[in-house]
Computed example of a mutant assay.
Amino acid sequence: MRVVAAMSGGVDSAVAAARMLDAGHEVVGVHLALSQSAATLRESARGCCTIEDAGDARRVADVLGIPFYVWDMAARFQRDVVEDFRAEYAAGRTPNPCLRCNEKIKFAALLDKALALGFDAVATGHYARVVEATGADGGVRRELHRAVDAAKDQSYVLGVLDAEQLARSFFPLGDTTKPEIRREAAERGFYVANKPDSHDICFIPDGDTRGWLTRQLGAKPGEIVDSDGTVLGEHQGAFAYTVGQRRGLALGRPASDGQPRYVVEVRPEANQVVVGTADLLGVNAITGDHARWCGPAPDGVVHVGAQVRAHGEEYAATAWADGDRVEVRLDSRIRGVAPGQSVVLYDGTRVVGSATIAAARLDRERVP
């Protein structure tokens, strides 16, 4: 097969490209230029997509002896990921830009361009597995599963892939742990074998999300109130807060009962942040929209595992599809579920699909 290997300049994508070549595929390395003003050097493990990263990817391609190109997708990334991130926070929601990037850039823009140029598939360095299984009709289908290395598993951020995209995607690292990947990279002579992993939000390399949002949206002072409307403090922008947050509230009035306070709601229309005790955070019912299925949509009510954070715990639940929406009922209450986050559903290790959380609440009929 003719395969585009997405090469970020890191160790994971380098080994992924090498493994695709070892498997006998015709491989072309592609680095995605996602920044309209890329920094020359990476200053820390935060961020990515610097000119240095592009150079690292090119050096790996040279070692492998494969063609290498840089594809400019900065405008698309700015529109579909950065502007979406800013708009979601302005609306009082908490988005996950990595899911949006996978959906809109790596497995839409990149895959679409690759197919248009005559390639058959895209390979990335994500930690996840593609398993071929026999369907009820006797045909073979490709399923997305968790990686062997639970600490590095990235199936959550790939839950936005649909069946057609999954059919043309390869994740060569899913059966390997990160230490093994680094050893393999060193054995192959890759300069990036010990390069630090990038983390956090790539377009906010200093890690200061609140500061970035304030620069983008401007300071908008407002009230921090409790559930009955009593003013407890002031904030500089409701967009800087998310449900479940405890740190950085700077409340002027301590709680009379001595219990810590958490953000329980963000009201962008009133520019208010509502705080309360931990018991107000517990929810067991989630409504999601923009449902994406990695295979057939659930037929009726199904028992699933639900995960609401990239490296969070999986919770037992039931779920059912309703057009573009999905309803999830958790077997127990969980805290800190914010609109804008994604809920990803699992059947064992298999990813069923995902949805963007529109609302979360406590369904008292389900409370023991």
Results as ranks from 00 to 15, higher is better:
residue 259 Q to K: 15
residue 202 C to H: 14
residue 289 D to E: 13
residue 245 Q to L: 01
residue 327 E to C: 09
residue 258 G to Y: 04
residue 333 R to L: 11
residue 207 G to C: 07
residue 328 V to K: 13
residue 307 Q to K: 15
residue 237 G to L: 04
residue 219 A to L: 09
residue 277 T to D: 12
residue 303 H to Q: 14
residue 252 G to C: 01
residue 222 G to T: 05
residue 238 A to W: 02
residue 248 G to A: 05
residue 282 G to R: 13
residue 220 K to Q: 15
residue 314 E to N: 10
residue 315 Y to W: 13
residue 223 E to Y: 06
residue 303 H to T: 13
residue 325 R to H: 12
residue 305 G to I: 08
residue 216 Q to V: 04
residue 229 G to F: 02
residue 216 Q to I: 02
residue 205 P to E: 03
residue 246 R to T: 04
residue 297 A to E: 10
residue 229 G to I: 00
residue 203 F to P: 02
residue 313 E to L: 13
residue 318 T to K: 11
residue 218 G to A: 01
residue 201 I to R: 15
residue 279 D to S: 10
residue 267 R to S: 11
residue 301 V to K: 13
residue 306 A to V: 03
residue 205 P to R: 07
residue 336 G to T: 04
residue 319 A to H: 02
residue 289 D to Y: 09
residue 308 V to Y: 14
residue 256 S to W: 09
residue 299 D to V: 08
residue 232 L to E: 06
residue 307 Q to N: 09
residue 261 R to A: 11
residue 210 R to P: 11
residue 250 A to D: 14
residue 275 V to T: 11
residue 331 D to V: 04
residue 256 S to D: 11
residue 222 G to E: 04
residue 311 H to Y: 13
residue 320 W to G: 14
residue 268 P to T: 02
residue 330 L to C: 01
residue 301 V to G: 04
residue 235 H to D: 02
residue 296 P to G: 09
residue 317 A to P: 05
residue 218 G to Y: 07
residue 316 A to I: 01
residue 282 G to T: 00
residue 208 D to I: 00
residue 247 R to I: 05
residue 329 R to W: 07
residue 203 F to S: 03
residue 224 I to T: 08
residue 297 A to T: 05
residue 305 G to A: 12
residue 310 A to G: 12
residue 320 W to S: 12
residue 245 Q to T: 00
residue 311 H to S: 15
residue 241 Y to A: 08
residue 252 G to S: 05
residue 241 Y to R: 07
residue 276 G to H: 04
residue 315 Y to C: 05
residue 295 G to C: 03
residue 277 T to P: 12
residue 213 L to A: 06
residue 245 Q to Y: 02
residue 312 G to D: 05
residue 210 R to I: 00
residue 323 G to K: 06
residue 230 T to M: 13
residue 304 V to W: 09
residue 303 H to S: 12
residue 224 I to Y: 09
residue 322 D to P: 01
residue 325 R to D: 14
residue 336 G to W: 00
residue 310 A to H: 14
residue 254 P to G: 09
residue 240 A to W: 03
residue 247 R to D: 13
residue 321 A to M: 00
residue 246 R to P: 07
residue 307 Q to S: 10
residue 210 R to G: 10
residue 204 I to H: 14
residue 302 V to T: 02
residue 220 K to V: 09
residue 271 N to V: 01
residue 251 L to H: 05
residue 239 F to I: 00
residue 219 A to K: 14
residue 231 V to R: 15
residue 275 V to L: 10
residue 228 D to R: 15
residue 263 V to T: 01
residue 269 E to T: 11
residue 242 T to M: 12
residue 320 W to L: 11
residue 298 P to T: 01
residue 233 G to Q: 07
residue 333 R to A: 12
residue 249 L to R: 06
residue 321 A to Q: 07
residue 226 D to A: 01
residue 214 T to D: 12
residue 303 H to E: 15
residue 278 A to P: 03
residue 247 R to N: 13
residue 209 T to E: 14
residue 289 D to I: 00
residue 323 G to A: 07
residue 282 G to Q: 10
residue 285 A to K: 12
residue 290 H to Q: 15
residue 295 G to A: 14
residue 270 A to L: 09
residue 329 R to Q: 13
residue 308 V to K: 12
residue 248 G to I: 03
residue 282 G to Y: 10
residue 260 P to S: 03
residue 272 Q to C: 07
residue 232 L to D: 03
